[in-house]
Amino acid sequence: MKTFNVSNVSLTYPGLYTDQAIIALKGVNLEIKSGDFVVALGASGCGKTTLLNLMAGFMAPTDGDITLGGQQVIGPSADRGVVFQKHALLPWLNVIDNTEFGLKLQGVNRQTRREIATKNLALVGLQEFHRHMIYHLSGGMQQRVGIARALTCDPAMLLMDEPMAALDALTRETIQELLLKVWQLTSKMFFFITHSVEEALFLGSRLIVMSPRPGRITHTYELDFNRRFLEEGNARAIKSSRDFIDMREQILGIIYGDERQSDNPELLNV
């Protein structure tokens, strides 16, 4: 059992136009264990992407420590897969080559990586699109290739930055259910950023709500809607249940509070 630990992490961006530095994150603590599905919600600009970039190792924190299984995170590596908001696939490769790209980099032989990539493409429902070029796919299909690509490297942890923001409701729900199935099968650690409260409640086993200026975690909730879905299999019933809706309103209240504040700088000092 690996544990991913973010302890007392702060990150300050140098000010771009003013001398005033931007404190994007301050004193963030987060522990993720195998089998945790952590979802992050928060007003725009509260530092969610920054936190994900730190966890992936694309940046180093100004202060604090990030460890995976006791080992300091010093840079990106294949044990932390990333799915981006914009797909970030490679347009010169077709679907299957994109999916197996990571294994190719790691020197896995062709037959093995084909097998793994084929399996993961089937998982995201793209078994018939192996030879398609990326630019001949719809946005939702591209995003699914991005997920299959991240899964193919079999990372201990999957980091996702609003991967479904650009998708239609139907594709979104399909992929949500798909992610939960992958989660159930693999007991990977998930860290998932979203703007949709409903999505957050449905997917997460733990929900963190972040607030801006400085970016920090203000609320943490333990959830079990995802397990209920995996047992009962009816997503709509869960999303329209009483406790789901109550929870949704409560969290919306918190986030709206933050959004209002960031729209109205004078209120900041109140």
Partner: peptide, 26 residues
């Protein structure tokens, strides 16, 4: 794009691989 480079690193690419297989191609 930065994302393409980040994605390659997060799949275990070395710096040389990023240059030869991502940047050069792009």
């Amino acid at each position: 794009s930065t994302e393409q480079i980040h994605a390659a690193y997060a799949m275990g690419a070395t710096r040389t691989q990023v240059i030869s297989q991502v940047i050069l191609k792009a």
